[in-house]
C-alpha cells in the first residue's frame, strides 16, 4: 500500500508528462481541428493538476474557460478561416533558443522560493493573517477570496467587469453580430458571396 503523499506525487508527475506530450502533439500537428481538441485536453490536464495542488476554484475556471468556451471560440474562428496550419517560412532555432533561455530563467527563479505550502512563506505571513482575522467580522462573507474580490476590492472588480463588458461589445460590433441572423459564419459567407458578385459585375 502506498501513502497518499507518494500517490499525489506520482499523479502530478504523470499529469505533467501528459501535459508535455500534449504540448508536443499540438506543435507537431498541422490539422487545426485536432489541435483545438488537444488544446481542450491540455486545459483538462492543467485542471487536474490544479485540483491536485488544492486550487479547486482555479481548476474549475480553467476547465470551464479552457476546455469549454475557448474550444467553441476556436472552432468558430476555424469556420471563418482555414483548417490547416501553413508551414512557417522562418527557421525555428531563434524561437527555440528564446524559449529555452526563458524557461531556464524561470526555473532558476523558483530555486530560492520557499517550499510549496510552507507556513513561513511571505505570502502566508504578510497580509493574509490580517485578512483572515478581519474578514468574518467586517464583511460576514464565509469565503475570504470572495470577500477580497467583492468587498475590499469591490471598485476594482467593478472596473474590471466594465472593461471586459466594453471589450465584448466592441468585438461583437466589429464582427457584425446582427440580432436577426445570429450566425457569424453565415454573415462571413454572405459577405464573400457579395464580394464575388461585385467582382463579376
Amino acid at each position: 500500500m502506498i501513502s497518499p503523499d507518494t500517490a499525489a506525487i506520482v499523479i502530478d508527475a504523470l499529469l505533467f508528462t501528459f501535459l508535455v506530450i500534449t504540448a508536443l502533439a499540438i506543435v507537431q500537428l498541422r490539422h487545426l481541428f485536432a489541435v483545438v481538441m488537444l488544446a481542450g485536453v491540455f486545459s483538462l490536464l492543467s485542471a487536474g493538476l490544479f485540483v491536485s495542488l488544492d486550487a479547486v476554484d482555479v481548476a474549475f475556471t480553467e476547465a470551464a474557460v479552457g476546455a469549454g468556451i475557448s474550444t467553441v471560440l476556436m472552432l468558430g474562428t476555424m469556420a471563418l478561416t482555414a483548417r490547416e496550419e501553413k508551414k512557417s517560412p522562418h527557421p525555428i532555432f531563434l524561437p527555440l533558443l528564446v524559449c529555452l533561455v526563458t524557461g531556464a530563467a524561470l526555473i532558476y527563479g523558483t530555486l530560492d522560493m520557499p517550499p510549496f505550502g510552507s507556513p513561513d512563506a511571505p505570502v502566508q505571513t504578510h497580509v493574509a493573517p490580517d485578512y483572515i482575522a478581519r474578514t468574518p467580522v467586517e464583511t460576514g462573507v464565509p469565503n475570504i477570496v470572495t470577500a477580497v474580490l467583492a468587498s475590499y476590492r469591490g471598485y476594482d472588480t467593478l472596473g474590471e467587469t466594465t472593461v471586459i463588458f466594453t471589450a465584448v461589445i466592441a468585438v461583437l460590433m466589429l464582427l457584425g453580430w446582427d440580432t436577426k441572423n445570429r450566425s457569424l459564419a453565415r454573415n462571413a459567407r454572405r459577405r464573400e458571396e457579395d464580394r464575388e458578385k461585385g467582382d463579376e459585375a
Partner: peptide
C-alpha cells in the same frame, strides 16, 4: 466538483458537435 466537470464536458461535446452539424451554436 467532479459532477460539475461531467456537466461541462457534456455541454461542450454538444457544442462541438452542433458546430460541425450547423456551423453555428446559437441555432
Amino acid at each position: 466538483i467532479a459532477m460539475l466537470y461531467a456537466l461541462i464536458n457534456f455541454v461542450s461535446t454538444i457544442a462541438i458537435l452542433k458546430f460541425f452539424r450547423y456551423r453555428d451554436i446559437s441555432r
